[in-house]
Amino acid sequence: MEIKINGKECTCEKGEFLLEVAKRNGFDIPTLCHHPGLAEQGCCRVCIVEVVENGRSKVVVSCVYPLERPCEVFTDSEKIKEERSVILMLLKTRAPASLEIQAMCDKYGVFETSRLKPVDGEKCILCGLCVKACGALGTGAISTINRGVTKKVATPYENPSNDCIGCTSCAQVCPTGAIEWSEDGETRTIWGKNFALAKCESCGRIISTEAELRFAGERAGVETNSLCESCRKKSMADVLAHTYGIE
């Protein structure tokens, strides 16, 4: 199927999400809550674009908009620039401490207003990526709690979670740097809980937390190997070399 993006003819499959087609063809559409490893969120609205079908224009969220018929797309029309500026203004008000959002505001422009009061020190935009990543892993250690203006992401009762394994998957997918964690070489701290670090028995490189290593072994039903990726490949190569008599 043929569509046109900013005047360029592009080919796509029916049902493909517009964001992926645009990215594949070299068009820059900003995103926050989109992550290739997780199902579509469509909650931050930063990736809006203008779609014209049968002479009618509409604004859509490109990360969750499936292409069903030929159309013309504008990623940076004046209408989109104006609406995206308002969206960024609202996000900046919600999470004024996020350097990532500030950088996006600087790049794409933001509608300035003094009518809204920023949430002091906040970085989270409640996109839900961290909760989804934790759930996909199978731990479900965090979730959104409370409602309205007090809604936030936290562990149950905001106490250290028995289910958390310190893998930092939540922090890795967070688009605004809201989830903080630290390491001192022996211990990793996240969500108010300390985790002993597991190190490669060959080179001493940090692999993960001991809790994450146990969790992975239990899910796979095998005894976990305390080797980093590089040492594991080297060990496998040594075994194959010995098996086939290769010096």
Rank of each mutant, 00 (worst) to 15 (best):
E180C: 00
L67F: 00
A237H: 00
L32A: 04
I207Y: 05
V149M: 11
S226G: 01
V64F: 01
E180M: 10
A133Q: 05
L126T: 05
V21P: 08
V222R: 08
Y108K: 05
P175W: 07
E68N: 11
L32D: 08
G37Y: 11
G42P: 03
C164A: 04
A196Y: 04
T150F: 08
C231L: 12
G135C: 06
V86G: 00
G177F: 15
K132G: 00
V21E: 03
K132S: 10
K233R: 14
T176Y: 12
G217K: 12
L227Q: 11
V46A: 04
W181Q: 01
F195W: 04
N225H: 09
E112R: 13
E50P: 00
S161G: 04
A154V: 06
R147V: 10
I101L: 15
M89C: 13
K14I: 12
E180G: 06
R205A: 13
R115L: 13
N194T: 05
I80Y: 04
E180P: 00
A95K: 03
V51E: 05
L38R: 07
I145V: 15
V73K: 10
A241E: 13
T243C: 05
E218G: 03
E20D: 15
L137Y: 12
V131I: 14
E218I: 12
C164V: 01
T139L: 10
N6K: 01
E223I: 09
L129D: 01
A154G: 15
E78F: 05
L19R: 05
I179K: 00
V239H: 04
L137W: 09
W191T: 06
C174N: 10
P66A: 06
V46E: 07
K132A: 13
G140E: 05
E122S: 01
N159H: 10
R84H: 09
D238L: 05
A136D: 15
T224M: 10
M89H: 06
I80L: 02
G42I: 01
A136S: 15
V153R: 08
G221Q: 12
K117E: 15
A220P: 00
E83T: 14
R214P: 00
K8G: 03
E229P: 01
E210V: 14
T113A: 09
S161N: 03
S208V: 02
F27C: 10
D28H: 06
E20H: 13
D106N: 14
V49T: 04
P175F: 06
W191D: 03
P156E: 02
V149L: 10
C203F: 09
C200S: 08
H34Y: 15
F17M: 13
N194G: 02
R205G: 01
K123L: 01
P30G: 06
E218K: 13
I5A: 02
R56Q: 15
R115Q: 11
S226F: 13
A198W: 09
A196T: 10
D28F: 04
V119T: 09
Y108A: 00
V46N: 04
Y157V: 02
R24T: 00
E83I: 15
D238E: 15
V86D: 00
T187I: 15
A178C: 10
E13Q: 14
I29V: 15
C170H: 02
A220D: 11
C167N: 02
R214E: 14
E122V: 03
L240M: 13
T224G: 06
R188F: 07
F195S: 08
V153N: 12
E53R: 14
K79E: 08
L240V: 12
G185Y: 07
C200P: 11
L32P: 07
